[in-house]
């Protein structure tokens, strides 16, 4: 009943601040936000507009480049029929999905154990994982190249699926560790006394409660894999096994010749899945699922 009443009135601290005028808010909040929005969205806008222009319009410098007069889907048709873009998209999706799943599985176990279990060396393992994350891929790609060569995985999607977790796992582990630490310890203790094993307590109590965090970690991992460039550039030479970022930059640019239409169309298509994912799951980051767990 108390919570119902509270919902009607609004949570403390979410109401309008007394003496806060609309003009003041506009200057302090809305104008800076608008400026930020324009700066952020302009490249996307230009990218989108360019991808719908015909070849003649694209190189007509007498008109403003910011509008499109006769929209056409030529470049998209071209992209799907004349290039290996469908392969690249498929490869990117497979690599991003599988490496995200592998990383999540490992990170959930690692993050949970580092947050909850007391064992010898837990702290140093935690720091070790963190330091691993700080080593830049530009240093790591050399040794990794040897490993991939030894495993005969060049031009094989597994090369990427196995190397992406090297930076995804540290990242996700640290993120999930924080989420697991935020779950009150007593919840799992209650489950243990209630008859659950440690694994059952984790699967039935900790993981459902850390779900917003797990989704967030999944999303970041997916985005990082989707956009990854360096490893893909080095391990994938065959046109058919390339990912979108590498395929687009290598095959839609020849020397100083830029295929602007296809480039922009491919870039736009490449950014759509990530944008869609974000828009779906954004609410999960905000939802505080532990509300009501303890005290009142």
């Amino acid at each position: 009943m108390a919570s119902l009443a509270r919902r009607k009135i609004g949570k403390p601290g979410t109401g309008r601040v007394i003496g806060d005028k609309f003009v003041g808010r506009t200057i302090r909040i809305y104008l800076p936000l608008l400026a930020l929005l324009v700066v952020t969205l302009f490249p996307f806008y230009w990218m989108a507009v360019t991808s719908f222009k015909s070849a003649s319009e694209l190189f007509d410098f007498s008109v403003s480049p910011l509008w499109v007069r006769e929209p056409t889907l030529d470049w998209y048709r071209h992209l799907f029929t004349q290039t290996n873009f469908p392969h690249w998209a498929f490869n990117t999706a497979v690599v991003a999905t599988v490496s995200t799943l592998i990383s999540l599985f490992c990170s959930i176990l690692a993050g949970y154990s580092l947050a909850r279990l007391r064992y010898r060396g837990a702290d140093s393992i935690g720091w070790g994982i963190f330091v691993t994350y700080l080593v830049p891929p530009t240093l790591l790609f050399l040794p990794l190249t040897f490993v991939i060569r030894e495993l005969h995985l060049f031009n094989n999607l597994w090369a990427l699926i196995l190397t992406y977790p090297t930076f995804l796992i540290p990242f996700c582990t640290w993120m999930l560790m924080g989420f697991f630490k935020g779950i009150p310890r007593e919840l799992e203790e209650a489950a243990l006394v209630d008859g659950a094993t440690r694994i059952q307590a984790m699967v039935r109590i900790a993981i459902p409660l850390a779900l917003p965090g797990i989704l967030a970690a999944a999303l970041f991992a997916f985005t990082l894999s989707w956009n990854e460039f360096l490893y893909s550039l080095i391990f994938m030479n065959d046109s058919l096994v390339k990912t979108i970022p590498v395929g687009v930059t290598q095959e839609l640019i020849h020397g100083d010749e830029f295929f602007w239409g296809e480039l922009m169309a491919a870039a736009l298509l490449g950014s759509v899945p990530v944008a869609v994912l974000y828009s779906f799951f954004v609410d999960y980051f905000v939802a505080g699922m532990t509300a009501g767990a303890v005290k009142g």
């Binding site: 009150p184 203790e189 489950a191 699922m289």
Partner: peptide
């Protein structure tokens, strides 16, 4: 703990929120 067959009530209640 699960084999001891005791029940515990915590100060924070520790109800499973989900």
């Amino acid at each position: 703990p699960r084999d001891r067959d005791v029940a515990m009530v915590f100060q924070s209640y520790a109800l499973y929120p989900h």
